[in-house]
Design a protein around this nucleic acid. Structure first.
Lengths: 136, 136
DNA sequence: CTGTATCCGTATAGATACTG
DNA sequence: CAGTATCTATACGGATACAG
């Protein structure tokens, strides 16, 4: 094997790590669920199918663009189904698949942890900032 | 109460929803853990304390800037501790707090779901793309 | 009603160079 | 060894206008 500079070795290690990350299931999952509206859509659909406008009304902060984009991505991944009723005006219903529902259950675990511990995190953060502010 | 246009009502609903989101523990948690390197750092420290350079070597893809930033944020939130040993050269050790370890455990659930189901998600995605491609 | 198309401002990650 | 400071490119969310 030819000799390599430290820079070359570093670069190779980085490339390998990036490849590892790209194939890592956990990483892919995190990329998917950390989209800003995914968790909220999953939660909105957790208690049954809903129409586009219903979801839109429930998640008052979401733009049409982002809602459509989020729904499309979730449909693409098989986490929900999209059913078009060609009436006038058209009606589109979204419903979680079993796969989507099971992901929703896991997200529920996160929610539980958040409700139990985020207040402590907030306190830690405030204390840290107070210390940093005091020494400045 | 004064009358409001539909636009005004919409805007108010959006403002309220944004406020709700800002105070939602789950949202805050998701914002924190979806930082690109948080999960990896938690995992790296799961099996015991490590030095800065050790983490850096293990996560070959991370830049110094992002690693430092991630570690600082986690320290700020009380999820890990930072211990400086003023030798020459300096030595800095990072270690999960119990809070950080408990978050790591929850992340483990996500990992399990990912390992069990992400392959199916990938297949769904590929099938969806194949359909979309065929009709184009 | 349920979208699509386009533009724009900002936030973020990363590269690079420098320091105690 | 363990950072800090600065710059840049890109991606992303959001606003707006339009359409089937």
């Amino acid at each position: 094997m030819a000799t390599m500079t430290a820079d070359q070795r570093r670069e190779e290690a980085r490339a390998q790590f990036d490849a590892y990350l790209a194939s890592c299931p956990s990483r892919k999952l995190l990329d998917r669920i950390s989209d800003k509206w995914v968790a909220l859509v999953l939660k909105s659909l957790a208690d049954g199918p809903k129409r586009y406008s219903d979801i839109s009304r429930q998640l008052a902060g979401v733009s049409q663009k982002m809602l459509t984009q989020t729904l499309r991505n979730l449909e693409r991944d098989g986490l929900l189904t999209r059913t078009v009723t060609p009436s006038v005006p058209v009606r589109v219903d979204y419903e979680l698949t079993p796969l989507g529902a099971s992901l929703g259950a896991v997200m529920g675990r996160l929610k539980t942890w958040a409700e139990e511990h985020m207040a402590e995190v907030e306190r830690n953060r405030a204390a840290y900032d107070a210390r940093a502010g005091a020494t400045r």
